[in-house]
Design a protein around this nucleic acid. Structure first.
Length: 855
RNA sequence: GCCGGGGUGGCGGAAUUGGCAGACGCAGCGGACUCAAAAUCCGCCGAGGUUCACCCCUCGUGAGGGUUCGAGUCCCUCCCCCGGCACCA
């Protein structure tokens, strides 16, 4: 590899120089930043002195909770994704700290879950061993990033001291009726042998964790009633500074639909009815049949004897189909007639009842009314089975005839063929119909959500046990809080999934006495979805040193909400909904002071390499270790920030990193040359520098600060590079022979290093000491810019003729528009253009330009 | 199909939100230093034309139209790439 070769050569040179003590060239051993000595030294010093420790009980006026999504210890190696996430976030956190905020930037491990368990099975060890050793190893490596994590306030979700509170949370939800059991269809991963939440099934119908096919299976499961919070979760989106795309995704995921429920009485049993949900009650007169989902509870009772065979055959076939097949838009809609009829609520017309697997049992009422003229799916269904069509909505300017229609008319319009509702516009009609239905007790306004309740039971070992006991006498008995945690037993012989939880085979675990009656009872053998663990970790970070309570409410009051939350957009409809839900729930319990956990959310972009997304399967993954070994941690993390916009992602280049390496070493040479002696605490004085340089210094301070607040690390680094380039022009390319005022140069470099510190913490700490600093640079205030230094006495304006740049003029910045215009017109270069026509107009933008319009 | 985000030199990417397109970096080219190379420092670096050269001119931000004194930026139509949702009645 190219990078290795060039670096090795330097190491050899370095070595030779040191050995022989050669000083005959101008470059000395000091000329390269000795990261391999500096970085471990400061990592150790920071650990020893506890400079990053935070007193959570003293939040101060300017608290700042910076949270980056914690990671899954799936291997014992830090990969580039960790650096990409943690490095820039830490730069932001350090910047805020230097600006005087009391910053809390915690780190922990989301350590329960399938990857560790699957890995443990593969290598034949215990999941706990795999997990704990990965955590120990990763935590050690995290020091290398140079982040200011305070490990006194960490969480590890697979430890009893954490999952005790996961179970406690379950019990609180249970008490409020928000945790319940339901026998229903669930997503079942055939390979992981466990249930998955909808959020864990990928678009192609495969398992998020292992990629294998997911089928539907009927099982008794625990659910959290997140649908109760659907509206609140929607409304909350208005109050937070989150990416537009994520807000949209959550809105779509929650999928609120307003419409009506309409009851159709059964023809054979008028006291029974089928209720449908529709968003188009205005089309009710166009109903020509209704369709039930195959799993609809009334199907078997209403199917006629003649149709029984056909219906049963159809259901059997439908149930065999996977959910992917059933919901594929390209699949032809199918159905079968039940032989039964309902009566139309307004016309009393007889309407046939069909079943069709494109109707989902889990959405709305599991039954729909078919209006083929105004719904595309119904239209196709009508064509296939030759069912009648009734036009009841007229487009603004034309009349529709059923036989001419090639597709359904789904836009709003005016009601026709709808008895005494004729002439109403769709939007009005919806309300009127709903009122009418309510009057007649035949339905009314209804709201339905696409989001389903959150299924949390997992038939796997490596998770937080569900704290529930089943007693023959008492039924479902929650484990009393005083008995928490329900410890995950170690003595499990077989972790391999087989359709039921491995815990079910551990008799010592399963057999308990009922907390209520003292009789024999059994535990729930399942464990909880790991998203439960991560739904409250942001609150537990603030209390993880407290063993007797879940949350230190006082601290929560002082520190919540999270000021900036950083993590992947892939969690948009998973974790990021769950943790909002649980925060809201805890808010209602009086625990969380806020309804919304995170004020601001930032998604890191995707790292590319060679123009394509970095991934194992593409084989283009960059191993951080190689580059950290060759360039050091600061250069590596800084290059990641420089590659591109943090939110957009960037394209890694093995060569590109040399740009940052050179930049750091350019500063290093300035530091080693001008850094002798004690620290001069003075700030750079205007008189000591060329006017432009002084201005650039303050401009840099200003724009780097603004950029950091915006997570615009790439442009911030560019600004610092510009300053360094300008400093070199001032001191002269050859630093050793520089004639500039030593003290003035030193003050300038001190300021530069302070600005740089959040980006390159080890480097800056070392540089600061060499410049004479005694305290850690992170106790130093990040510099403030002088507004006055940014002002220019004269400005350069461009002179345009008809929008094209023709000249530039220098003018005092307070010159009035009329004078600017005269000056522009006096320009030699402009004269020839002026003579070609007549001046029609002059646009003067002070400080920017003069545009002369000529025809 | 719907919802987001994009398309700018050889490459990664900037552009104060309508005001000098290409900051900064990589690569490349030239010079200084050196016996030499590396490193370092200085300079050049969108395309075309014109010119000994300095200058100067024309074109140029996926394509086409529009608004405007002025458009990478705003509007309309279209193409392509990335991510998400997708029979939700």
């Amino acid at each position: 590899m190219r990078v290795n070769n060039s670096r090795k050569k330097t190491d050899i040179e370095f070595f030779t120089h040191t050995l022989t003590g050669t000083k005959d060239t101008k470059m000395s051993t000091e000329d390269r930043y000795p990261f391999s000595e500096v970085e471990p030294k400061w990592q150790q010093t920071w650990r020893d002195t506890g400079v990053h420790k935070v007193d959570l009980d003293a939040p101060g006026d300017d608290k700042m909770y910076v949270l980056v999504m914690f990671s899954y210890p799936s291997s014992s190696k830090l990969h580039i994704g960790h650096w990409w996430n943690y490095g820039p976030t830490d730069t932001f956190a350090r910047f805020k700290r230097m600006q005087g905020c009391n910053v809390f930037e915690p780190m922990g491990f989301d350590s329960f879950g399938l990857p560790a368990e699957n890995y443990a099975i593969k290598v034949g060890t215990h999941p706990r061993e795999v997990t704990e050793s990965s955590i120990a190893s990763i935590q050690e490596q995290l020091y290398a990033i140079g982040a200011m994590y305070d490990w006194d306030h960490s969480v590890i979700t697979s430890r009893p001291e954490y999952y005790k509170w996961t179970q406690w949370l379950f019990l609180q939800l249970y008490k409020k009726g928000l945790a319940y059991q339901k026998d229903g269809m669930v997503n079942w991963c055939t390979s992981c042998q466990t249930v998955l939440a909808n959020e864990q099934v990928q678009q192609d119908g495969s398992c998020e964790r292992c990629g294998n096919i997911v089928i539907q299976k009927k099982m008794k499961q625990w659910y959290f009633r997140i649908t109760d919070y659907a509206d609140k979760l929607l409304e909350g989106l208005n109050d937070i500074d989150w990416p537009e795309s994520t807000i949209k995704r959550q809105q779509n995921w929650i999928g609120r639909s307003e419409g009506a429920n309409i009851r159709f009485a059964l023809d054979a049993m008028p006291e029974e009815y089928i209720e449908v949900f529709t968003t188009r009650p205005d089309t009710v007169f166009g109903v020509t049949w209704i369709v039930l989902a195959p799993e609809h509870p009334l199907v078997s009772s209403l199917t006629t004897a003649e149709q029984k065979e056909a219906v049963n055959g159809y259901i059997e076939q439908a149930m065999r189909a996977t959910d992917v097949e059933r919901t594929s838009t390209t699949r032809e809609k199918t159905g079968v007639f039940t032989g039964a009829y309902v009566r139309h609520p307004f016309t009393d017309k007889k309407i046939p009842i069909w079943i069709g697997d494109y109707v989902l049992g889990s959405y709305g009422t599991g039954a729909v009314m078919a209006v083929p003229a105004h719904d595309q799916r119904d239209f196709e269904f009508a064509e296939k089975y030759s069912l009648p069509m009734e036009v009841v909505i007229r487009p603004p300017h034309e009349m529709l005839e059923p036989e001419e229609m090639r597709e359904a008319y789904t836009e709003p319009g005016m009601m026709v063929n709808s008895s005494n509702f004729n002439g109403l516009q769709s939007e009005v009609a919806k309300k009127v119909i709903c009122e009418k239905l309510e009057d007649r007790n035949q339905g009314g306004l209804a709201v339905t959500y696409r989001m389903r309740d959150w299924s949390i039971s997992r038939q796997r070992y490596w998770g937080a046990p569900i704290p529930v006991i089943y007693c023959d006498k008492c039924g479902v008995v929650p484990v009393p809080e005083k008995d928490l945690p329900v410890q995950l037993p170690d003595n499990v012989k077989e972790f391999r999934p087989k359709g039921t939880s491995p815990l079910g085979a551990v008799d010592e675990y399963m057999n308990v006495t009922c907390p209520e009656c003292g009789g024999p009872a059994r535990r729930d053998p399942d464990t909880m979805d790991t998203y439960v663990c991560s739904s409250f970790y942001h609150l537990r970070y603030l209390s993880s040193d407290k063993t007797g309570e879940a949350f230190d409410i006082e601290r929560l009051k002082n520190w919540m909400p999270i000021d900036v939350y950083v993590g992947g957009a892939d969690h948009s409809t998973g974790h990021l909904i769950y943790f909002r839900f649980i925060t809201r729930f805890l808010h209602e319990l009086g625990i969380s002071p806020v309804e919304e956990p995170a004020k601001k959310l930032i998604h890191q972009g995707v790292i590319k390499h060679g123009g394509i997304k970095m991934s194992k399967s593409k084989g283009n993954v960059v191993n951080p270790d190689d580059f950290v070994a060759n360039y050091g941690s600061d250069v590596f993390r800084m290059y990641l920030m420089f590659m591109g916009d943090y939110r957009e992602g960037g394209d890694w280049s093995d060569e590109g990193i040399t740009g940052i390496d050179r930049f750091i070493n350019r500063i290093w040479r300035l530091v080693t040359h001008f850094g002798d002696g004690a620290l001069d605490t003075g700030i750079p004085q205007k008189a000591d520098y060329p006017k432009e340089l002084y201005r650039t210094l303050h401009h840099t301070i200003k724009s780097v600060g603004e950029d950091l607040n915006n997570f615009a690390f790439n442009t911030a680094i560019s600004r610092m590079m510009e300053l360094v380039n300008e400093i070199y022009h001032w001191v002269g390319g050859d630093v050793q022979d520089s004639k500039v005022d030593q003290e003035a140069a030193k003050r300038l470099i001190q300021t530069l290093v302070t600005v740089l510190a959040p980006f390159a913490p080890h480097f800056s700490e070392e540089a600061w000491q060499r410049l004479g600093g005694k305290e850690s640079i992170f106790t130093v205030k990040w510099p403030e810019f002088e507004e006055e230094a940014l002002l220019q006495k004269t400005v350069t304006l461009i002179v345009q003729v008809n929008g094209k740049v023709r000249d530039r003029i220098e003018a005092p910045s307070d010159t009035d528009n009329e004078t600017l215009k005269t000056m522009a017109m006096a320009s030699d270069k402009v004269q020839s253009y002026l003579s070609e026509g007549t001046l029609r107009k002059a646009i003067v933008v002070p400080g920017k330009l003069v545009n002369l319009v000529i025809t």
